[in-house]
Design a binder for these strands. Sequence first.
DNA 1: GCTCATTTTTCAACTAAGTTGCAAAATAAC
DNA 2: GTTATTTTGCAACTTAGTTGAAAAATGAGC
Lengths: 147, 147
Amino acid sequence: MSQWCNFRQLLGRHQLRPTTLRLRVLEILGAAPQALPVQKILALIRTERSVNKVTIYRILGDFCNLGIIRKINPEGRSTFYELACEHHPPHPHFQCRRCGEVQCLESISLDHLCEELKEVLGPGALRVEIRVEGICPKCQALTPKKV
Amino acid sequence: MSQWCNFRQLLGRHQLRPTTLRLRVLEILGAAPQALPVQKILALIRTERSVNKVTIYRILGDFCNLGIIRKINPEGRSTFYELACEHHPPHPHFQCRRCGEVQCLESISLDHLCEELKEVLGPGALRVEIRVEGICPKCQALTPKKV
DNA sequence: GCTCATTTTTCAACTAAGTTGCAAAATAAC
DNA sequence: GTTATTTTGCAACTTAGTTGAAAAATGAGC
Ligand SMILES: [Mn+2]
Ligand SMILES: [Mn+2]
Ligand SMILES: [Zn+2]
Ligand SMILES: [Zn+2]
């Protein structure tokens, strides 16, 4: 998604050392066209080297607390993550019931919807997560509708 | 939430026998002013009798597949459920970062927001889940903001 | 370069939610 | 009452994520 960020600089701004793993996690999230589950991130790194899952969980947890990445809670047991840099303002997501993938609906601004919601919610609302559920085009194609 | 439904009838319509446990689950969800986590449902029933968690998971799973109840995926590891009868059309939810409770924002109609989203999504969208995150009034009161 | 303090990564063990297959119990149909 | 079907329970398992403490890597001061 974002080749535009300087990840070393980003980490520095948050007093985090630019270790190989931290940079790799950011690169992976930055290159992904969609939000990724932890397992996928782990698997990608493990094609190159060995890592302990605890390390990845801790890296993701730290990034999330600092607001560098966003955590997404989709249907199912695994959590997904995506970059939260200025090139990726918050947006709704689409999750496929078949394959479980989580697509970004970047064309839909959350700001607009949030305005409506905030009228009712007041200032207590810190974040809004919108998840649309359905069948993705890829899966639709696999099982064409019977006529 | 809903004392207005005839649960025996509801189960009958779906060819499910009106067993004590199934009715109890519906009553609990119907009486709750908010969505409940599985653990809470289990705990409530266990104040009255002994139950195996598997049974509850199966009852909730069946209800969910039949559209009798709705599953909510909040932050955290436990799933929440709520009645999905005609008295409870889909609506956004508010989840507190402190206590984790999931309140229903019934005053906000999803239909309106869905219209906007559907323009972009086409007919592939089967369901929309909106989750607002923040601090609930109860928890706000416990930790008053420092002036 | 060497020493010490701090940060990062690993390891092993654990927790908690949810699942599976099958047996026991309850219920309905005959 | 006997039998077939549905529901519930039991035990064992899976999977995502967590914990605490040790080992390894790094950085600062010398
Ligand atoms: Mn996204
Ligand atoms: Mn609700
Ligand atoms: Zn799909
Ligand atoms: Zn609260």
